[in-house]
Nucleic acid binder design. Structure first.
Lengths: 134, 134
DNA sequence: TATGAGGCCTGTAGCAACTACAGGGTCAAG
DNA sequence: CTTGACCCTGTAGTTGCTACAGGCCTCATA
């Protein structure tokens, strides 16, 4: 039941320093301490940290994670708040995917414009810099 | 022909501070100065800055941009180096797109699991934190 | 000629979200 | 009783900028 910070880290794939950082910025509560001043975590903290890490993996900023936690901390709150944050994030993800796809096309064009010869014959540099005129 | 830092910025959609920052970290050379100590740029610098910005837009890190510039600075070098960097970057972009798509699926699942009721009935929190047992 | 708005200068400090020390205390095994 | 792995605090570094503060310079207009 009692967990050290290292065990928390292993369980959630989080560096120790990151956990302390989350505590410092108030995402994680200050935990109990053992007699030797070690942090002493329970399941609740583990759950909270899992939630944070999972949200981070999904690309939520720490600020959004804080908002999500805030919403979920008020027990009686309806989950429309969470839904709103997540839906908005979905839009951002879609936009990011579209951007990356456009970028991919351009990158491919850049690579294809290189025939393996020397820079003098290669168009990559010009393809990236709209300089041309001197 | 002569450009102020502000004109450079406008031409490449770059903030003045960013240009000075590129100079500080050695991506841009220290330019000539006017009698009143203003930076005095020419077409070569404009081209270089364009290249940097374009590469950044394509998601290359400043370190990779530096590598690209290094390769292109050696006139006789074949462009295989550039091609290698760009191809590797393309792989990263593809990976990122795949990740985002997986994320999108998960986000969608999270959103769908919310029926607009209260948190008590909503599965979003549990969906994100693998805690369950207490 | 003066004056006001805008541009430029240097230098430092701040942002996110960590990560990496330095310099120490603690604990369990052999 | 010592060794090595863990933990503690606190500070400074990372990337790629961005935002001041405090001060010149320049140009158009009154």
């Amino acid at each position: 039941m009692a967990l050290t910070i290292g065990e928390m880290g292993k369980a959630t794939n989080t560096k120790i320093e990151t956990i302390r950082y989350y505590e410092k910025i108030g995402l994680l509560p200050k935990p109990a301490r053992t007699s030797s001043n070690y942090r002493d975590y329970g399941q609740a903290e583990l759950g909270r940290l899992s939630f944070i890490r999972r949200s981070r993996d999904l690309g939520f900023s720490l600020d959004k994670v804080r908002a999500l936690l805030g919403v979920s901390d008020e027990k009686s709150c309806n989950c429309a708040g969470i839904d709103r944050i997540a839906s908005q994030h979905l839009l951002e993800v879609d936009r990011k995917i579209a951007d990356l796809r456009a970028l991919r096309r351009e990158l491919k064009a850049v690579i294809d414009s290189c025939d393996g010869g020397t820079v003098a014959e290669c168009r990559i540099i010009e393809a990236l810099g709209p300089v041309a005129s001197t």
